[in-house]
Simulated assay, not measured.
Amino acid sequence: MPPFNTAIVKGYNALTGGRVKLGKWDEYMSMRAGVLAINTAFRDLLSNDLGAVAGMLFDIGTGRFPAPPLPGEDTADARSVWHAELARARDNIKVDKAQAAADQQDVTHTQVQGWLRDLGLALGFDVWIASNDRGRPYGDGRLADGCLAVLPPPIAGGPASDAIRLIDVLWLESNGCVTAAFEVEHSTSIYSGIVRMLDLALSGEPGAIRGLYLVAPDSREEEVRAQLRRPAFSRVSDLHVRYLPYGELDSNREAIARFGRGLHPIEQLARNLN
């Protein structure tokens, strides 16, 4: 059996007007000669190893891109229609890529929240997950599994409760006091997360919350520091908000869960932002 690929064959036929069929060596050799001719004619746009032309034929065969008008049908109107279809296809690909990037961002954000959830529970804290993230799939269940269903009354009844509910992860003592707050900042501005933590910190007794943490990729540290130098964040230095890199959290979370106690291990990993 010759090495045919159904999508590539369909793409080749659409591009050339051929009628190549699967499963015959003479058909395969004919298509191979045609592909080599296309690659030679457009070598400046394609690659020497046939990877680019094969990818193009595959994309045409799967309907990702439309084939240009065939010889004899290549009128001005037909080419105009093809250009319009090609533009739509390119726009759709941009949307698909943007959605894929957004999905990956959500997965990463949720994953880090899950790390913090599991770590907080292992260290004996009650854990709160942001109200808008509670139902996200995580592992074999939901992100809020095993966590508080409602905030303690002093927080839930306070003036900043709506903002505090949206903090990504809270660790609380059994008496309902917040020990640590974590905002996961994968790629977006830190502004909203900082504001929520300020609301939390300023809603209770000064110094009552031991840890306020921005959790972000290792590569964002300098960017976060630059944002915190803005005048709008002048109060942040008073609250000792600290930076917890993904890498440190990921590398140490299992050991902390097994051998750690209280907030001390997280304090050792986090970096001062002052």
Rank of each mutant, 00 (worst) to 15 (best):
R230C: 06
Y191W: 07
P217V: 00
L202D: 10
I194E: 15
R242S: 13
T188V: 03
V215C: 03
I209W: 00
V195M: 09
V236I: 10
R225P: 07
A201S: 12
Y191P: 00
C177Q: 13
Y243R: 02
F182C: 03
V224Q: 10
G193T: 12
L244P: 01
S187Q: 04
E183V: 09
R225M: 03
C177W: 02
Y213V: 02
Y191T: 12
P231K: 13
V195Q: 11
V215H: 06
Y213L: 12
R210W: 06
S234G: 03
S189I: 04
E205N: 07
A201Q: 14
A181S: 09
A180N: 03
R230H: 13
A232M: 09
A226I: 00
R235E: 11
P217Y: 01
G193P: 02
E221M: 15
P245F: 09
R242G: 04
R220S: 11
L198G: 06
L198F: 01
A226C: 03
H240C: 10
T179M: 11
V236D: 09
E223L: 11
V236F: 06
G211D: 03
Q227D: 15
E223H: 14
A201N: 14
L228F: 03
F182R: 09
N175W: 01
E223I: 08
T188L: 02
M197C: 08
V224D: 15
D238K: 01
V184A: 07
R242C: 04
E183K: 06
V236Y: 04
P245L: 11
A232I: 12
V178F: 06
V241W: 08
C177R: 15
I190C: 12
I194W: 05
D218P: 00
R230Q: 14
R230V: 01
D199M: 09
V195E: 10
V236R: 10
V215W: 01
A216I: 04
A216H: 08
G207N: 07
A180E: 06
Y213P: 04
L239V: 14
A208K: 13
R229T: 05
V215P: 00
A216F: 08
L228S: 14
S219M: 15
D199I: 03
L198Y: 05
H186Q: 13
P245A: 09
F233N: 12
I194R: 08
E221N: 12
L214G: 09
